[in-house]
Simulated scan of single mutants.
Amino acid sequence: MFTGIVQGVATVAAITDRPGLRSFTLGFPKGFCEGLEIGASVSCDGVCLTVTRLRGTDHADFDVMLQSLNLTTLGALTEGSPLNVERAARDGAEIGGHPLSGHIDFKASVASIRQPENNHVLRIAVPPQWMRYIFAKGYIAINGASLTVAEADRKACWFEVWLIPETLRMTTFADKGVGAELNIEIERSTQVFVDTVRDAIDERLGPLLPALEKLLAAQGQSVDDLARPPAQLPG
């Protein structure tokens, strides 16, 4: 498990391709590898990877399956690419963000960037089927960083996050331009709640569901709004 608090930026030092596998050698910030062991988990741009070899005091190897390369942004990495990294949380560790599994749900892309004074706003385009789990004021993990959704537009399929200077300093987000792909892990308890409510609605309403959807649409809402977790309902 990870906390979503990025601990530094690593760099791809080398890439080795083998049948069905790609190995990355990553160079880490000073002190990051202290106590790191083979078999340990590290979040690399939000993807949970296992240490397969230690190289000196600040480099380590990780093997990545082809499926993970295809489903995440790791397949596009080249030598010199930077990544957000976090060591696995220890028992009793403070959860500064929210609990993350390191299992990516989908890739999204940067649709636009705004830069109000001392802020950096990313608008992120999302595949439509995933918007049901994204709500304003809810948590989301982007490239391994726990962030709060500032705004979300379900019809246009985007959400926004606001990044402060410290977040930009500690992560790779300052280097992401329009069109850049991002790894997204949705907040798991939100997914469970939404899916449970939707299943209950489908089961109870059955053939009446299309009529309800039509009625809600006329009011600018959807069944997904009914499945919004209570903590994220407008006050």
Rank of each mutant, 00 (worst) to 15 (best):
T3V: 04
I5V: 07
Q7I: 02
G8Q: 01
V9M: 12
A10I: 00
A10K: 00
G20Y: 09
R22P: 01
T25H: 10
F32S: 00
F32T: 00
C33T: 03
E37F: 03
I38M: 04
A40E: 07
C44P: 09
D45F: 05
L49W: 06
T52V: 11
R53V: 04
G56S: 08
D61C: 05
S68P: 09
T72W: 04
A76I: 11
L77F: 14
E79I: 05
P82S: 09
N84H: 09
R87I: 04
R90W: 02
G97P: 13
D105S: 05
A108P: 06
S109W: 14
S109H: 13
P116D: 14
V121F: 00
V126R: 03
P127R: 00
R132T: 06
R132S: 03
I134Q: 08
A136Q: 09
K137N: 01
Y139F: 12
I140L: 05
G144W: 02
A145Q: 09
V149Q: 04
E151Y: 10
R154S: 05
R169W: 13
M170E: 15
F173Y: 12
A174Q: 15
V178Y: 12
E185K: 08
E185M: 05
I186D: 11
Q191A: 15
V197A: 14
D199S: 13
A200M: 12
I201G: 10
L205D: 11
A211E: 15
A217I: 08
A218V: 06
Q221E: 15
Q221K: 15
D225M: 06
A227W: 04
P234Q: 10
